[in-house]
């Protein structure tokens, strides 16, 4: 059985460099390099594995500003079949609800085109477990609901797809252990870093990608209601951003010639002042 997959790819700022401007209290975005959300590359690898053993197609899908096509160009190099960027002013400012609305409309369209081309629709939707900018992990499950897909999040190991039964088995990571789940296709999975890292792309794939197009779809290309897109379609509002309350830099206990035992004594004196006393059975 051939499996058609969609992999959701988000271009994110390198979050280690994102800061709040202390004067204006707004986010400094300028000059921050963009990267592909690292978990999405794990998701892409999982999709590539499925295609390796079952055939079918992989479409990379991203919603973002025009320059997000860079991320899609890059994933094209892994030898996927198609890359679609949803880019339109109307999509801007979307929270996860509006994002899943827009992405799901695009996935429906992709499925429609696959069917029109004589194939089945979309069997699997892959997402990263979360994006490193928003950190929500809400988009994968949201897509599952909107598209009526089985929902399996935090997948730490994706097992074989069983063609006859149209099911897939996956290990899902929980805080207290791992559970083996069996899900019926079509399914939406979100992938953690415990899965395999992305492969080293083959040169022939890179060569093909160098000339392959990234398709850009606007709102007009999708069957969507304008009011449910972007900022308009987003129930949440950011009312304020601010720098995390910086922990005050404390006291330095070491000095140029201060011997370690004196430092240690000073530390435990200080701790005692804070009420942290060494010595048990006093109370």
């Amino acid at each position: 059985m051939r499996i058609n997959s969609v992999v959701c790819i988000k271009q994110v700022p390198d979050t280690t460099q994102v800061r709040i401007d202390p004067d204006s209290g707004s986010l400094i975005r300028q000059g921050i390099p963009s990267v592909i959300n690292p978990y999405d590359l794990y998701a892409l690898e999982a999709a590539l594995k499925v295609r390796d053993s079952h055939g079918g197609t992989i479409t990379a899908l991203s919603m973002g500003p025009p320059q997000a096509d860079e991320a899609l160009r890059k994933v094209l190099g892994y030898g996927i079949d198609r890359a679609v960027l949803l880019s339109d002013r109307a999509f801007a400012g979307a929270d996860t609800l509006a994002t899943t609305y827009t992405l799901s409309a695009a996935i429906r369209k992709i499925a429609g085109e696959l069917i029109a081309a004589g194939g089945a629709g979309v069997d699997m939707v892959f997402c990263g477990k979360q994006s490193i900018d928003g950190d929500t992990g809400q988009v994968g499950p949201g897509l599952a609901r909107r598209l009526d897909l089985s929902q399996v999040t935090y997948v730490c190991s994706l097992l074989e797809v069983a063609a006859e039964t149209r099911t897939v088995r996956a290990w899902r990571q929980r805080e207290d252990g791992r559970e083996l789940l069996e899900a019926r296709l079509p399914v939406a999975v979100t992938i953690t870093e415990a899965c395999n890292p992305i492969r080293y792309a083959a040169l022939p794939d890179l060569l093909r990608a160098a000339k392959a197009p990234v398709e850009v779809w606007s709102a007009a290309d999708l069957e969507v209601e304008p009011d449910r897109l972007g900022l308009k379609g987003s129930p949440t509002r950011v009312s304020k951003v601010f720098a995390p309350p910086a922990r005050e830099r404390g006291e330095t206990l070491s000095g140029p010639d201060r011997p370690p035992n004196e430092i240690a004594a000073a530390l435990f004196d200080k701790l005692a002042e804070r009420g942290l006393t060494i010595g048990g059975s006093r109370g």
Partner: peptide, 22 residues
């Protein structure tokens, strides 16, 4: 948690409302 986030995302989508994570 892995279950709380899983459930909240699905339910908020179904209820067409906002969800603030974490």
């Amino acid at each position: 948690t892995t279950r709380g986030r899983d459930l909240a995302s699905a339910a908020a989508t179904e209820l067409e409302t906002g969800l603030t994570a974490d």
